[in-house]
C-alpha cells in the first residue's frame, strides 16, 4: 500500500497513473454525469415550451430560439417581452435583455479556459456556444478533481442541447391542448414559474438586498414607464445594489 502522500503529490500521482481515455470515453462520461441535471433541463424545457405557445411563438420560432439562442433564463425573459404581432415585437429590448441576462456567462466560460491549449482559442470559443449553466457546473466539478476534458464538456453539452430542443418543442405541442389558459388558472403559470426560478437562485443572505431593490424598482418603473423596460431597469439597479452591499460588507 502506498504511504500517505501530501495532497499535491497525490494528485500528481493520480494524473500520471490515470489510464489514457479516448475522446468517446470522455464524451460518454460527460453525458452520463450530466443525466441528473438534464432531468431538470427537460422539466424547464417543457414549461418553457408551454409558456412560449401562450406568448404567441410559432413552433418554428421555438425551434429557432431553442436551437440558436440555447440559454434558458434569457429565453424565459424573452417570453415576457414577446408579442405575436410582428410590428409590435420589441426587437431592441429582446436583444438587450438576452445580453444582460447572459452577461454572467463571461464569468462561467472564463473558468473553462484551462481545458484548451494556448493555441486553441478559436476552437474553444466555438465550443462555448454549447455551454449551459448545468453542463458548466458538472465540468467545473470534474476539473476540480483534476479531470475534466473538452470531450466531457461536449458529451454533457450535446445531451443538454438535444434535450432542450426536444422538450421545448414537446411543450409547445402540449400547449395546443389548452384552449383558454385563463379558465384553468394557467395565466398564473408564468408568474409561478418565475417565482420558482427566482427561489432556485437563492444562495444566501447576500441575495436579499439585490432582490428587494430589484423588486421595488421594477414595481415603480412598471407604473411609470410603458412597455417592459421595468425588467431591465430593476435588474440593473438591483444587481448594482447587490454589488455595492457586498463591497460595503467587505469594507468593514
Amino acid at each position: 500500500m502506498r504511504p500517505n502522500h501530501s495532497p499535491a503529490i497525490d494528485s500528481g500521482m493520480s494524473i500520471a497513473n490515470a489510464p489514457i481515455t479516448t475522446f468517446s470515453d470522455q464524451f460518454y462520461a460527460g453525458a452520463r454525469a450530466c443525466i441528473p441535471v438534464i432531468i431538470s433541463v427537460a422539466a424547464y424545457g417543457v414549461v418553457w415550451g408551454v409558456l412560449a405557445r401562450g406568448a404567441g411563438l410559432s413552433v418554428l420560432e421555438v425551434i429557432l430560439m431553442s436551437g440558436l439562442v440555447f440559454a434558458g433564463s434569457a429565453q424565459f425573459v424573452a417570453l415576457d417581452l414577446w408579442s405575436p404581432i410582428p410590428s409590435a415585437l420589441p426587437i431592441g429590448p429582446l436583444i438587450l435583455a438576452a445580453l444582460i441576462v447572459n452577461l454572467r456567462y463571461l464569468l462561467l466560460t472564463a473558468t473553462l479556459r484551462p481545458l484548451f491549449g494556448p493555441h486553441e482559442q478559436a476552437k474553444g470559443a466555438l465550443i462555448m456556444g454549447i455551454v449551459s449553466d448545468e453542463t458548466w457546473a458538472m465540468t467545473v466539478a470534474e476539473m476540480a478533481k483534476g479531470r475534466g476534458t473538452v470531450a466531457f464538456l461536449l458529451g454533457g453539452g450535446v445531451l443538454a442541447y438535444t434535450c432542450w430542443m426536444a422538450t421545448t418543442v414537446a411543450g409547445h405541442l402540449l400547449g395546443s391542448f389548452i384552449d383558454d389558459p385563463t379558465r384553468y388558472g394557467l395565466d398564473f403559470a408564468f408568474t409561478a414559474t418565475f417565482l420558482a426560478l427566482l427561489l432556485g437562485l437563492w444562495k444566501g443572505k447576500s441575495d436579499l438586498i439585490p432582490w428587494l431593490v430589484a423588486a421595488v424598482v421594477a414595481v415603480i418603473s412598471a407604473k411609470l414607464i410603458p412597455g417592459s423596460w421595468y425588467i431591465l431597469i430593476g435588474g440593473i439597479v438591483g444587481s448594482l445594489a447587490g454589488a455595492v452591499a457586498e463591497r460595503l460588507r467587505h469594507a468593514d
Partner: peptide, 30 residues
C-alpha cells in the same frame, strides 16, 4: 468569457455585479 479569461475580474465589484444579475432580473419580472 473564454477569450478574455485572463483579463476578467474574478472578484471585486464587477464580478459580484455580474453574479447578481440573474436574480435581480428574475425578481424584477415577478
Amino acid at each position: 468569457g473564454l477569450l478574455l479569461a485572463n483579463r476578467l475580474p474574478r472578484e471585486g465589484f464587477a464580478a459580484s455585479w455580474l453574479r447578481h444579475i440573474p436574480g435581480a432580473v428574475m425578481a424584477s419580472l415577478v
